[in-house]
Design a protein around this nucleic acid. Structure first.
Lengths: 345, 345
DNA sequence: TGGCACAAAGTTACCGTTAACGCAACGATC
DNA sequence: GATCGTTGCGTTAACGGTAACTTTGTGCCA
């Protein structure tokens, strides 16, 4: 009597060994057929490929990366996924990384520092090749972990202060200052600031601070200011704008922390019969896809998200290849539309 | 003379072995301190935790998952990251997965089937616990791979046809039909359809088909139709709408495949002096955050993205725990605003 | 005081892949 | 025709964990 071990029955996910057995070669030869094809005879390689196709073989990268030291995950940590704030950064970044066969592992902190620590830890546990993260301000432990990891860290969207490794972004104080400057140049004098400025949204805080500082420099203090802790959306903008009009009926210009908030502000001002840009001017930040389509078309500041995404990918490749860390400042533009007065030259 | 081997010099990323050596216990005890803490003496556990903190130890999940068969990656495959189309699905989904310590690995196919195959293969190579993917239509090889993987597959955003495992979405033909029905109910008769309907955007095609079928059922053929292969955006909408007015000046209603396209359509119609909703009605799909803020506020169809994201997470947990696959249809709502006539009752 | 159950730690064997190394067969070289 | 570099493949040892099994130590009870 013979004992037959029926291992064709078990439909376990195929491994290199399954292929090797089927073709009648060693495991390593199969591995080589994948990693260094020209070291395997063409005929044999073909048979191996056929077997892999037949068995629907998918390499196990857990094992591959564990063995081969290099990983091809890139951790991407953002603070928000709502609206289009960071979507096109992620889109551009992931598309560029794909060219080099790098996979994106995504995490969303929702502006919560505890969550950020947890997520960074979780991402590092996958031994990524690099980490791209929004902001240059992180809890001390996050900075420590990222530094200790020894991999390239690209901080996106913001610059200034202490950088962990490399940064690609712009100065948000400048953006706030530019909002104030534009309004002042257009002849507005009673400035207000409205929007979501969360406790942990350092960029929003910077923009507000830049706005106030610039206004103060022009002798325009105090400026009315109405902020909220919740995330920005049109309803919030509408609510804050109505409150603002009640408290400070004299204001003649509003700077918003984001376009979606401004959308609500425009609605509120229209309801109250304010003419824009004659009675009141509105400027925002973000260049949402609808900014040119609201009434009146919204003057806003357009950060170059695609460029940040692409440069981040470039920086990751460069750093992996041993280039020195560097900080790159990315341009943004003020897009003047009809929601602010166009002063005659 | 003594030879000193200085291994404190090498700052390699710490492993369980480093911790074990420092504390003076076996590797396994350290592992247990993490995975089954109550099987390790409290005092010893404390010393281990201190050492891990000191050395900034981050567990290597590559090794952990390779050994322990279970992974905590969930692959998420979307067709687009632009605008807010899928952002809030991803946001809700990732947040819900986080509660169970599952990590999102993101891929964006950009409506390219070859890319989809490549990305699915890449994701499966990480041996994810589950895959959530947009759409119910995939290249045959993708379906084969996903089926062969043996893990839960949740198809999101669409339903109907052959489902791989589970699906959570809605019928896009119905949506198109609802657009037509609404316009007809409001008294419009010369209907047009405008938008981005890409070769591989099956959902867009379904909506268009549903729209045409419903219009035909009401005896309103032929309907003017202007579509583009590029992705939707306001400029495209404006261009298509202008062309539409030139070719078919008689039309009195436009259905758009997405809100962002409709934004441009509104702009074009306004430029041409059309009054909405009197001269012409506009309905769209997506409920973009700005839909209520454009002029006139846009009638549109709102899919419940948060619900899809949450139900997908639930389905993943359920399937992992051995529940049967199932298809769930998620409600959507027609949000009537001022861009379509409100017929008096 | 011996026996036994149980808690706490150590040993060992993988997980699937890659990389370093080894070795045979073969053609080129002098 | 012995030497040597290539080519093509097999062997073996990691990679850093986890899980099953084994060993040691402790308290309790008969």
């Amino acid at each position: 009597m013979t004992i037959e071990i029926d291992d064709t029955e078990t439909r376990a996910t195929p491994t290199l060994a399954s292929i090797a057995q089927q073709v009648g070669v060693s495991v390593n030869t199969v591995s080589r057929a994948l990693r260094a094809p020209n070291t395997v005879r063409a005929e044999l390689r073909k048979r191996i490929n056929v077997a892999m196709e037949e068995l629907n073989y998918v390499p196990n990268r857990l094992a591959g990366c564990l063995s081969g030291t290099r990983t091809d995950i890139v951790g991407v940590v953002v603070t928000s996924l709502y609206y289009s704030e960071f979507a096109s950064i992620i889109d551009t970044l992931q598309s560029a990384l794909l060219d080099r066969d790098l996979q994106v592992m995504l995490a969303n902190t929702r502006y919560n520092p505890d969550q950020e620590l947890r997520l960074v830890r979780s991402i590092l546990s996958w031994r990524p090749a690099a980490v791209a993260i929004i902001g240059v301000d992180h809890p001390p432990k996050v900075v420590e972990l990222l530094k200790a990891s020894g991999i390239p860290i690209i901080e996106m969207w913001d610059t200034g202060g202490e950088v962990i490794d490399s940064a690609i972004g712009f100065d948000h104080e400048e953006v706030g200052a530019a909002q104030a400057r534009h309004l002042i140049e257009q002849g507005y004098r009673k400035l207000a600031f409205v929007g979501s400025v969360r406790e942990n949204d350092r960029r929003a805080q910077k923009r507000l601070h830049g706005f106030e500082t610039e206004a103060a420099a022009a002798g325009l203090v105090p400026v009315a200011k109405l902020t909220a802790q919740q995330g920005g959306n049109p309803d919030l903008g509408e609510r804050l704008a109505l409150e603002l009009l009640d408290r400070h009926p004299e204001i003649d210009a509003v700077a918003c922390n984001s376009d979606v908030v401004a959308f609500g502000v425009l609605r509120a001002l229209t309801k109250r019969g304010k003419r824009m840009p004659e009675d009141i001017g509105v400027i925002a930040f973000g260049d949402n896809e609808a900014a040119a389509c609201v009434t009146p078309p919204l003057t806003t500041i357009r950060p170059d998200r695609e460029r940040i995404g692409r440069l981040t990918a470039d920086a990751i490749f460069a750093r992996i290849n041993g280039t020195e860390p560097r900080t790159t400042v990315v341009d943004w533009h003020l897009v003047a539309r009809d929601s602010t007065r166009r002063r005659k030259p």
